[in-house]
Design a protein around this nucleic acid. Sequence first.
DNA 1: GATGAATGAGACTTCATTCAT
DNA 2: AATGAATGAAGTCTCATTCAT
Lengths: 198, 198, 198, 198
Amino acid sequence: MPRTPEQNKLLREKTSKKILEAALKLFARKGFHGTSMSDIAEAAGVSKGLAYNYYKSKKHLLEALLILMQEMSNQVEIVMNKSDDPFEKLKLIINYSFKYVKDNEEFWLLYMGIIFQPSVLKSSVLIFDEVYDSMYKVFEQIFRRIGMKNAVAEARIFGGLFDGIFLGYLMNKDKYPLEKVRKQMLKRYSKIELQKLL
Amino acid sequence: MPRTPEQNKLLREKTSKKILEAALKLFARKGFHGTSMSDIAEAAGVSKGLAYNYYKSKKHLLEALLILMQEMSNQVEIVMNKSDDPFEKLKLIINYSFKYVKDNEEFWLLYMGIIFQPSVLKSSVLIFDEVYDSMYKVFEQIFRRIGMKNAVAEARIFGGLFDGIFLGYLMNKDKYPLEKVRKQMLKRYSKIELQKLL
Amino acid sequence: MPRTPEQNKLLREKTSKKILEAALKLFARKGFHGTSMSDIAEAAGVSKGLAYNYYKSKKHLLEALLILMQEMSNQVEIVMNKSDDPFEKLKLIINYSFKYVKDNEEFWLLYMGIIFQPSVLKSSVLIFDEVYDSMYKVFEQIFRRIGMKNAVAEARIFGGLFDGIFLGYLMNKDKYPLEKVRKQMLKRYSKIELQKLL
Amino acid sequence: MPRTPEQNKLLREKTSKKILEAALKLFARKGFHGTSMSDIAEAAGVSKGLAYNYYKSKKHLLEALLILMQEMSNQVEIVMNKSDDPFEKLKLIINYSFKYVKDNEEFWLLYMGIIFQPSVLKSSVLIFDEVYDSMYKVFEQIFRRIGMKNAVAEARIFGGLFDGIFLGYLMNKDKYPLEKVRKQMLKRYSKIELQKLL
DNA sequence: GATGAATGAGACTTCATTCAT
DNA sequence: AATGAATGAAGTCTCATTCAT
């Protein structure tokens, strides 16, 4: 009894997702070169052959993950635009980012891993460069609207803080006081404190 | 006539340094797994066999680099202790760190690469964990002495800033306004501004 | 459609046997260090990679052969126990051993090669030591039952004879009068002649 | 102050002997392929370069050892010819051989190693074949003179005994009752016992 | 859609040999 | 006579990818 086309489509999606998730997990932890297709297939519970049935090559798997990440990165802007007040925006960004990292550790690790080894996938750099650039532009505007003189530098500091904090957190999740840091960030970038510095 | 021991020592030092430098450059850019011993030997201008004459294995090469890094990391504390004033300490740390990254981009890249793929070298994690921990302790003390309530979180923020900023810088050295950011950091952590927030 | 598990099992057995046989042949003739995995793969008619698919390393291949040999070595005792008469036992041992060597030249060569280079595989020595020891014990008992005074030494002489004779035979199979020697051995260790020496 | 020609010659001989002895020791224990020139040079306490100064290649070293062995093998005949009585000859051979093995374990091990891996050195086979052949001829004559019918087979048995016994001895020097075996051999091949079997 | 046996290029590593001094 | 740095071929092993079924 052959499967109906719908059943087949569902099955395909499910399997392809399993593979993608296994790849994400392993690339994040062991790096692209440190992960073998066998590892991925095994972690996904499918045969090597089947993995190739869904993704033409190891590189294609990575690319599929990058595209996913790119799509997710748009979320920040959506969240941010829930308010028009720059101080409120900062708050939304901080809260969203901390939540995002906790929920998507692996994506974040993969992203960092790729950033640090651009040779793995030339094209990736371009993608992220754009994402980064546009993000910094937005931060800059926010700080300008707040009235800060050095909005360019402040934007870099603000953006850098996330990377740095999350890095520290992921390096040692058990000890890191993530919640305390989030609160302190909110305080540091609150209307009250920022206005003291103007 | 054989070479004199001195000649040999010089030769060994020169060659072993060439190899180590080539390894640093390549590991930093392409990652440990992404770099082959052939790459390293070629970049160093020696034969593959000779590289093994000096470093027992690819892993040993990496370890030699890590030891070097660990030695360098002690510098921060030395620099910091040139003054006893906590505000001055912060200034010294900021200036030293920015200078350090500019002068040792590759070390920093390698370090990040390793942090993100601890599976490459289990032992490395331990080394860095210690370094990090002791550094955060020192930052905490400084902020406590300044009179900040949330010294723990502030220390994490301060430390994270460096990683985040340098990460952004190394991702795109051409565009990054490193000097502006340094100045803004000095301002943000100056006595004047910090005291406004107490 | 994938192959059925049965098909795969058959395939695996066939291929793994081909590789093992090739390894035996080459290790026996050229020694462990003198044989390369390429040699083995080529002789087995498979790719190098496949050989590693079946045997984790060159050493594992050797170990697989040793286990086979150990299993075979139990045969002697089985054969010997077909009779209870010590003179008959000697006859059975002689006939079985001569036949065994002719049928399993390569195993015998491999075995000797390993004996002479214990550094190749430390564990092997222990295995064979045990086999040897228990064999000599058995020989000793036989000679004691026959009534010989120096059963210990006689057992060593009897056992040594096999090794020595087979060594001579395998060194130069064309010229060696194996059949004549077998007959003479039977005579030498026959009831009639042995009793003359009591 | 340059060395005199005599001094030089002495030095050369001493050094070349050191190297040869180191090679013998290592080849015997670890096999030809299992021994590296570095091992040999180190064991001999000289530099690798110097070893090559004395022996053109690793193979040449082995050949030098084989020639030495060949020279030593002539000793048997000399010893044997001290008496004209065949029974006495057997006694001399037995005693000499047991003594020889104890005094020259390494030579004997090397010899066995080569016998079992003729591929290492094609030429060696020819050398040993000759030695063996002539030896068996001599044994045959002895047994014929004693009056044995199957002198051919008896010669093979007698010769094989040595190889087999020594093999057993060298496999496990601590436990092997070499002295007992020697005595039993003398008894077995004494005039009294042999004549019982005629 | 699915399997896993099979391939082969390329990685890590060793070592006989050469050579500058 | 002597050293040991240096080379490069060859060996062990891994893994992305293909393919028969």
